[in-house]
Structure formats: C-alpha cells, structure tokens
C-alpha cells in the first residue's frame, strides 16, 4: 500500500513537470553554462509574473467547472481606463487610484460574467466570449485606441522599487527583480490555503465535480460560481495594472490572446478542463516550465521564429501527459 502510494506520488502530474523542468534545464545548461546563474532565476520570475497572475484567475474558474476567456479583455480595459483618465482627463497621480479603479472595473465585468453563468445559466465559454467582446469593443468605441507609455510618478516609483538587485560575477550585468513579484507569490500562498482549508475552496471543487450533488449537500452553487468569476475579474484588474507598470505600456489590446496560453498552463499544471481538479502547486510548476522554454530557446540555438512552435509542442506533450494521467486514474477504478 505504502509503496503504491509512493509510486503514485513519483508519477504524479507535479513530479512529471519537475522531471521535465530538470531535463530541460540540464540540456540548456550543458549547451550554455551561463544558464547556471542566479540571474536565470530572476529572469524567469520576472517573465512569469503575468502568466502566473492570469493562471491564478483562470485556475479558480476552471476548478469551479467553468472557463473564462474574457480576462485579457477585462485586463486591457482595467489598465487602459485609469491611464486614459490620468493622461487625458485629470492627472490623478495616485497608485491607489490606479489600482482601485482597475479592481472596480474587473469587479464589474466579473459580476457580469457571474450573472451570465450563474443566474442565466449560459455556457461559460459563450458568456465570457460575449463579455470579452463587450469589454474590448466598448472601450475602443468610447475611448479610442491610444498607447500610454509614460507612467505617473506614483506608479513610476513602484517600478523603481526592486526587491533584489544582483550583479552577475560571470557577466558583470546587473539583474533586478521588481517588488511586484510579491503579488503573485503571496496570492499563490493565499489561494493554496483557501482551496485546501476553507469551505469556500472546497465548495469550488465540489461544484466543479458534481453541481447537482453540491446543491443537494447544501452548497450555494450560484454564490460559488459568482465568487469564481468575480475573483477572476478583480485579480486580472490587479494583474493588468502590474503589466502596465512593468511594461510601461497600456493599450486596448496588449493582453488579447493570452487566454489560450493561460488555459494551457492550467491544463498542463493538472487543472482538468472539466472542473474539480488541480491546485496551485501544479500550475506554478507549469508556468515555470512554459516561461523557461519561452525564455531560453535562443540559448539552445533555436531561432526566435521557432519559439511559438516549440511552445506548442510543449503544450501538446503536457496535455497528453495530463490526459494519460486522467485515464490511468480512471482505469484504477476498474481494477
């Protein structure tokens, strides 16, 4: 029994991700010894911030049995509107205002998604697709398509605050890690705790597993669905403002298209697309893997134009492993 459990752990989704990350790092490291540097850790963390934030939104929705393809559009609106106001209406130079408005906008669209899915019972894919179009189309029509590349001083101050400054002894270059990296790290810990130790978290798994049984057991299914979409909207508002600060760019289309890589990151991380499965650990590993691949392909001598192709292959492999794991889990019930 014990060795069986140990075997199950060693071949779990998370451990397989660890193996793949180790093998990939080893290959890159052999070709390019410069890879073995603390700078790689800093670079990976910096590059993973957005994907990690988005994955934390999507993961919650998928676990609850839904899907959200509207978060990139919501994020764009949530960073564009405050920047538009600051630049063209009233120069309110206050970080609380920028983040606060972004959160409010995310909240509004999250409530809309929740209403469409939980109250009107629309299929989540269609409902969030509609929200995406409404958000994206609405902001372009009303406020136009500009690009704001200058941050107000309060946000610039955040940009200038670094958590770690590191000078590589090998290259002499200086690497920094922005303080905003703490946001996904803290939220990861909070979400992991919430999913495991609160009835809210268990409720999300429960409605993702069997909605009818959840209702019979006394869970408030509608409330939990609302919670998932509202969380996704609110946190993508925060994530989009982080994007604006770190990239110095707020446009109406910057994040569009990110939903697919985010959903893929969740699925590779063991979040089953049908709901009710997965957790923070797997998603963190999967985000690290995807970021490593995206960042370090050039180190292997693979041209940048091949990056998307290779990322696609990684996604495919990851998904095959996940689906194979699911089948194996189902098969054990026959034995």
């Amino acid at each position: 029994m014990n060795s069986k459990k140990k075997h199950a752990w060693l071949t779990s989704n998370q451990m397989i991700l660890v193996y793949i990350i180790a093998v990939f790092s080893l290959i890159v490291g052999i070709r390019q010894p410069a890879f073995w540097d603390f700078a790689t850790v800093l670079n990976t963390m910096r590059a993973a911030i957005f994907t990690m934030c988005f994955a934390l939104c999507e993961m919650i929705v998928i676990i609850s049995g839904g899907i959200d393809v509207s978060f990139p559009a919501i994020g764009c609106v949530a960073m564009y509107v405050p920047m538009y106001i600051i630049n063209r209406v009233a120069p309110i130079d206050n970080a609380w205002f920028a983040f606060g408005l972004a959160v409010l906008i995310g909240l509004a669209f999250g409530l809309l998604n929740g209403f469409l899915v939980a109250i009107l019972n629309l299929p989540p894919l269609i409902a969030t697709l509609a929200t995406s179009s409404i958000a994206s189309g609405g902001v372009v029509t009303i406020l136009g398509t500009r690009e704001f590349t200058v941050l107000p001083s309060s946000l610039q101050a955040i940009y200038n605050t670094n958590l770690i400054t590191y000078t590589s002894p090998k290259t002499g270059f200086q690497y920094v890690l922005n303080v905003l990296v703490l946001v996904p790290i803290i939220v990861c810990l909070l979400i992991a705790w919430m999913l495991k130790y609160t009835m809210l978290g268990r409720g999300l798994y429960v409605i993702g597993g069997n909605k009818t049984a959840a209702r019979v057991a006394g869970f408030n299914v509608k409330k939990l669905q609302f919670a998932a979409y509202v969380w996704s909207g609110v946190f993508v508002g925060v994530a989009a403002m982080i994007y604006n600060i770190l990239m110095h760019s707020a446009t109406t289309s910057a994040l569009m298209g990110d939903e697919m890589i985010t959903i893929a990151a969740c699925v590779i991380g063991g979040v089953r697309i049908t709901g009710g499965h997965g957790g923070v650990g797997g998603v963190v590993l999967s985000v690290i893997l995807i970021t490593l691949v995206q960042n370090n392909l050039n180190m292997l001598g693979i041209p940048t134009s091949w990056q998307r192709f290779v990322v696609g292959i990684v996604l495919l492999l990851g998904t095959i492993i996940t689906s194979w794991q699911t089948k194996r889990s189902m098969k054990m019930s026959q034995a």
């Binding site: 009835m199 597993g209 069997n210 009818t212 019979v216 057991a217 709901g275 499965h277």
Partner: peptide
C-alpha cells in the same frame, strides 16, 4: 441511483463534507 457523490474528492471528504456544510 447516482449517489450524489463527488468523484473528484476523496472518500473521507465525501463522507464528511455534507455534515460540515450543514
């Protein structure tokens, strides 16, 4: 006939969860 159970949760949680909600 469908038992109204949660396939994605463990045996222990399936047994205890309804009472915890109550």
């Amino acid at each position: 006939q469908d038992f109204a159970v949660f396939p994605n949760l463990t045996v222990a949680e399936n047994i205890a969860l309804n009472g915890e909600v109550k």
